[in-house]
Simulated assay, not measured.
Amino acid sequence: MEHTRRKPWRKNLYENSDYEDNYTDPSFLQDLKTNQNLQTYTFLEAFVGAAHLSLQISIVTTFLVVFHYLYTDGVSPQNILVKAVCATIIGYLVYSVRNLRFAQIIEDLKTAAAVLVFGYIFSPLLHTLTDSVSTDTIFSMTFVVLILHLIFFDYGISAAIVSNAISLNAAIFGAICLASRLSSSFHAFVLLEVAAVYFALGPILVEKIFNLPLVLAAIATCCHFLLQISVTLFWTYSCVLVFINLFCPLLFVRLQRHKNNIHGPWDEAIVNDSSGS
């Protein structure tokens, strides 16, 4: 009889004093929805997404290849600098082919000249900046900051972890660490200019022209040079790419069927702004 005299339960905290604190009315779950606005991906879509990471890993790898040749004097720094300048000019033309204006070209040339001049002036300082640090420590620090560069890099997704500033600063810091191990300040200058091309200018161009042939070309280039340097490095690089481009997309696609998001009355309230209507 006491139960029948209670007021009908309502989704209002201050009107349910007759009910126990843990009472759940059957009507409470009528608004339950599962997997609302769920977006599923095919293996091809997941593969293309992973290709962005593979491309950036390949870019970092080619930068380390450049360092290796400078470190071992396998290639003259003048040769690398000329190639870096030519690649920069070609990339600039590709990026600005539809918006080339004489005034803009002059401004960009001034900026490039300033970067080269100041880079050359400060290269002796940067070359001796970490002389007191052991080579093993320098290489370990470089590995860590390049991993941070890959973690925080913008791969075209909206996520809280993405930070262009952290990614770029980590890559430049790694380049400065490696530059201190080279034989001369001019070697350090060349490596830092290559780092600026790879990590500051490169992402701007890659974002515009990204495609699978570009990824394959970058991977082929890395494989070619790594085979000349070390077979172990080649297989390590290959295994990492297989894991990223095949295993991870397959696992991601298979696990999508287990995704189960629930939405209901317990979700945070969203206030609709109707002032404009």
Score class of each variant (00 low, 15 high):
residue 1 M to A: 12
residue 3 H to G: 05
residue 4 T to Q: 13
residue 4 T to I: 08
residue 5 R to V: 13
residue 7 K to T: 12
residue 9 W to H: 08
residue 9 W to T: 04
residue 11 K to N: 15
residue 13 L to T: 10
residue 13 L to M: 14
residue 13 L to V: 13
residue 14 Y to A: 10
residue 14 Y to D: 12
residue 14 Y to T: 12
residue 15 E to H: 14
residue 20 E to A: 15
residue 20 E to G: 13
residue 26 P to K: 11
residue 28 F to Y: 15
residue 31 D to I: 08
residue 36 Q to E: 13
residue 38 L to G: 03
residue 39 Q to H: 08
residue 39 Q to I: 09
residue 41 Y to P: 00
residue 43 F to E: 11
residue 44 L to K: 10
residue 44 L to Y: 08
residue 48 V to A: 10
residue 49 G to V: 01
residue 50 A to W: 00
residue 51 A to D: 03
residue 52 H to K: 15
residue 53 L to Q: 08
residue 53 L to E: 06
residue 54 S to M: 10
residue 55 L to W: 05
residue 58 S to V: 06
residue 64 L to E: 00
residue 66 V to Y: 01
residue 67 F to L: 05
residue 72 T to R: 12
residue 72 T to H: 07
residue 72 T to E: 12
residue 73 D to A: 13
residue 81 L to S: 13
residue 87 A to C: 06
residue 92 Y to N: 08
residue 93 L to F: 09
residue 94 V to I: 14
residue 95 Y to H: 11
residue 96 S to K: 13
residue 96 S to L: 09
residue 100 L to M: 09
residue 101 R to S: 12
residue 108 D to N: 14
residue 109 L to Y: 09
residue 111 T to H: 09
residue 112 A to H: 02
residue 112 A to T: 09
residue 112 A to M: 09
residue 114 A to E: 09
residue 114 A to T: 10
residue 115 V to P: 01
residue 120 Y to L: 14
residue 121 I to S: 05
residue 122 F to T: 02
residue 122 F to D: 01
residue 127 H to D: 04
residue 128 T to C: 04
residue 134 S to D: 13
residue 135 T to V: 11
residue 137 T to P: 01
residue 139 F to T: 02
residue 142 T to S: 14
residue 143 F to P: 00
residue 144 V to W: 08
residue 144 V to A: 14
residue 144 V to I: 15
residue 146 L to C: 07
residue 147 I to Y: 04
residue 149 H to W: 07
residue 150 L to D: 00
residue 153 F to S: 02
residue 155 Y to K: 08
residue 155 Y to E: 04
residue 158 S to I: 11
residue 162 V to P: 01
residue 163 S to M: 06
residue 164 N to Y: 06
residue 171 A to V: 01
residue 172 I to K: 05
residue 173 F to G: 11
residue 173 F to K: 04
residue 178 L to G: 01
residue 179 A to E: 02
residue 179 A to I: 01
residue 180 S to V: 01
residue 180 S to L: 02
residue 180 S to Y: 00
residue 182 L to P: 02
residue 184 S to Y: 09
residue 185 S to C: 03
residue 186 F to W: 11
residue 191 L to F: 03
residue 191 L to W: 01
residue 194 V to L: 00
residue 194 V to A: 02
residue 195 A to I: 03
residue 198 Y to F: 15
residue 199 F to N: 00
residue 203 P to S: 07
residue 203 P to Q: 05
residue 209 I to G: 09
residue 211 N to T: 07
residue 216 L to S: 08
residue 218 A to P: 00
residue 221 T to A: 07
residue 227 L to T: 08
residue 230 S to E: 07
residue 230 S to M: 11
residue 230 S to T: 07
residue 231 V to I: 11
residue 235 W to V: 12
residue 237 Y to D: 05
residue 239 C to E: 13
residue 239 C to M: 15
residue 239 C to S: 15
residue 243 F to L: 14
residue 243 F to P: 01
residue 245 N to Q: 15
residue 247 F to Y: 14
residue 250 L to W: 08
residue 252 F to N: 01
residue 253 V to D: 00
residue 257 R to I: 08
residue 260 N to R: 13
residue 261 N to S: 12
residue 261 N to L: 13
residue 263 H to T: 10
residue 263 H to C: 04
residue 264 G to V: 02
residue 266 W to A: 14
residue 266 W to S: 13
residue 267 D to F: 04
residue 268 E to G: 09
residue 272 N to E: 11
residue 273 D to M: 08
residue 276 G to Q: 12
residue 276 G to E: 14
